[in-house]
């Protein structure tokens, strides 16, 4: 099970990077980056998974006494929560810059923006 999640995550990273490298449209590149970051989240969560254990939330079924034998690693989950929020911020900035670029040249084709090319 954990390998399925890992392989899916790695495939999503590769798909996202392929899309970001080959697409010319800035909005499509933004979507591709979102897919790649989803893949990294999946890989991170999968690494913290331990077969046969449950979520790190204590209640009647998982008491504090046997918590360390029953729950999976909470640290990668906390990390992924941070990563999701930062990913959202990055996506918002990319969309904003895409809008601003469109305003200057009236096109979203990245190959038309040659000002820094030499």
């Amino acid at each position: 099970m954990v390998y399925v999640a890992l392989i899916t995550g790695f495939l999503l990273i590769l798909m996202g990077l392929y899309g970001a490298l080959t697409n010319r449209n800035i909005l499509r590149m933004t979507v591709a980056f979102s897919i790649a970051s989803t893949g990294t989240h999946l890989v991170l969560v999968a690494v913290g998974y331990i077969p046969g254990r449950t979520a790190p939330i204590l209640d009647g079924a998982v008491t504090a006494a046997d918590a360390s034998l029953r729950i999976i690693d909470p640290v990668p989950q906390a990390l992924v929560l941070t990563a999701i929020v930062i990913g959202l911020g990055v996506t918002a900035l990319m969309l904003t810059y895409a809008y601003k670029l469109y305003e200057t040249k009236r096109t979203l084709d990245i190959s038309k923006y040659t000002d820094l090319k030499w």
Binding site: P56, I57, L58, D59, A67, I71, P74, V75, Q77, A78, L81, T82
Partner: peptide
């Protein structure tokens, strides 16, 4: 906290 992820964060 019952939610350990919340306690960490």
């Amino acid at each position: 906290a019952a939610n350990i992820v919340t306690a960490v964060i």
